[in-house]
């Protein structure tokens, strides 16, 4: 019986109730900067292995890293899982490709254009036009590659004239 679940390798679907319970708790922890998404949707949680949770930061300087760790700690403790340890790894480096399909839909609904998939090895391919999350138009333009958080760029829709955030391909 498997005791691990990995979002990086996509293998070992969790079978033990303990691991499944940890994954369930984590799926309830929101990202502090984009609370519509959980840390699992965003690909921040890489693995649950026995009683270890392995997470990775999106960007080296992501100011939410500590807050996220504390949120996970709190959620685990509240669920009676105080014995579960949290570990941070930098490798392999986080990529926006790890955002789940469900996460992409949540981003769109939240008003943030999701990043195209398969962008991991072409991190600067942000020149493909983003779809306006409000009116659906592809007639959009980048205002600035750097936005309100490290993971977002600032765009504008030429059709509905609204500015919007786009999650960067990274």
């Amino acid at each position: 019986m498997s005791t691990a679940i990995s979002w990086t390798t996509g293998v070992s679907p969790a079978r033990t109730p303990a691991v499944q319970e940890i994954a369930r708790v984590l799926s309830q922890v929101p990202d502090p900067e984009i609370p519509a998404l959980s840390i699992i949707d965003l690909g921040i949680v890489r693995e649950v292995h026995g009683d270890r949770v392995i997470i990775t930061p999106t960007y080296s300087g992501c100011p939410a890293t500590l807050y996220i760790e504390q949120s996970i700690r709190g959620a685990l403790n509240d669920a009676g899982l105080a014995h579960v340890r949290i570990e941070t790894t930098l490798s392999p480096p986080w990529t926006s490709d790890w955002i789940s399909d469900e996460g992409r839909e949540k981003l769109r609904a939240y008003g943030i254009a999701p990043p195209p998939k398969g962008a991991a090895n072409a991190s600067l391919r942000n020149d493909t036009h983003a779809q306006c999350p409000r009116c659906g138009s592809m007639n959009t333009a980048e205002i600035s590659r750097f936005g309100s958080t490290p993971c977002k760029a600032l765009w504008r829709c030429n059709a509905c004239a609204e500015p919007f955030d786009r999650f960067k391909c990274h």
Binding site: Y59, S60, G61, S144, F146, G147, L154
Partner: peptide, 13 residues
């Protein structure tokens, strides 16, 4: 915003 983002990346590194 751009410069603050660069600074943040660098301080993280």
């Amino acid at each position: 915003l751009s410069l603050a983002n660069l600074a943040l990346d660098l301080i993280g590194q």
